[in-house]
């Protein structure tokens, strides 16, 4: 397996490449416009890999995605969970679907809360073991923190769950789905450090493990979903600038020109 994390420091954002040296193919997960589609194309080519799939954990509200462009450039699918309310077409998947690149399996774990379509990707390198090795947790579970539940667009058709519902769902999702994974599994989030997508307890460290977060993630030490929701609200950072605009663009409701540089 070839596994690479790309950090976009201005927004404390992490995107990923998961590939197989034997198949010479790779998936890109959560690509960001700040780095740009060409960046991912060249990084993959440097590793001798062709990009055969572009995945997103969810429709982002705090940064501009380049997933559509990257998929189009490579003539490959752009994958999102079937709940994603975009106005443009994508290739949808369901909870439990498995995508394979060479010897690597990427299993879709439906992890709603931060958004209603949020999905984490469990990585298994079958050339080493049938046990999963890592999970890309998107904006569900961060190192030291959890994804915020309040980045809503203000449109009832799109904001399928309200803030309270999202917070409560986030708690059960993390407890029942992510913390049910083997404890050695490594955790790779979509954000770190100062990112506004989580709270004040988000670590600048770029990865963790299920064991460590289960034991030491402050929000997840709360007794129940209600206490969790209160804690998340109390420890939230300010809202990201222009998040409604960015989310609208990522949903296909705005053209790139209308962004005027927001979130790049």
């Amino acid at each position: 397996m070839i596994f690479k994390q790309f950090r976009y420091e201005p927004l404390n954002q992490a995107s990923y490449l998961v590939g197989c040296p034997k198949a010479k193919e790779a998936f890109i997960i959560d690509p960001i416009e700040g780095l740009g589609a060409d960046f991912y194309v060249l990084e993959a080519a440097d590793l001798g890999l062709a990009i055969t799939g572009v995945f997103e954990t969810h429709v982002h509200a705090d940064y501009v995605s380049c997933a559509r462009e990257l998929a189009e450039m490579n003539g490959c699918p752009h994958y999102l969970h079937e709940n994603a309310p975009t106005t443009y077409p994508y290739t949808s998947f369901k909870d439990g679907d498995v995508f394979t690149v060479g010897q690597v399996d990427m299993t879709c774990l439906f992890t709603p809360g931060h958004t209603p379509e949020h999905t984490s990707y469990l990585i298994t390198d079958k050339s080493r073991s049938d046990e999963p090795w890592a999970v890309l947790t998107g904006d569900c579970l961060f190192v030291g923190d959890v994804g915020r539940p309040d980045l809503l667009v203000g449109d009832q058709a799109l904001d399928v769950m309200d803030e309270g519902e999202r917070a409560q769902t986030q708690f059960t999702t993390i407890r029942d789905i992510l913390f049910a994974l083997p404890e050695h599994v490594e955790v790779y989030p979509n954000h770190y450090g100062g990112s506004l997508c989580g709270g004040v307890n988000m670590s600048g460290k770029n990865s963790s493990t299920i064991y460590y977060e289960n034991k030491y993630n402050l929000a997840m030490q709360k007794a129940d979903a209600a206490e969790f929701a209160e804690f998340v609200r109390d420890t939230a950072k300010p809202l990201p600038d222009d998040y409604e605009k960015i989310k609208s663009y990522n949903l296909g409701l705005l053209e790139k020109e209308e962004l005027k540089g927001a979130g790049v």
Binding site: L42, A45, D46, L47, N74
Partner: peptide
């Protein structure tokens, strides 16, 4: 096969310098 690290070195080892060349990459950025 492309990569930024040693494409030039490899081409130097394989082809004469005066050979007229055209690049074909997919996607075009390459």
């Amino acid at each position: 096969q492309f990569n930024r690290a040693d494409l030039v070195d490899r081409v130097e080892l394989v082809f004469p310098e005066d050979l007229p060349m055209i690049m074909h990459g997919e996607p075009e950025a390459i």
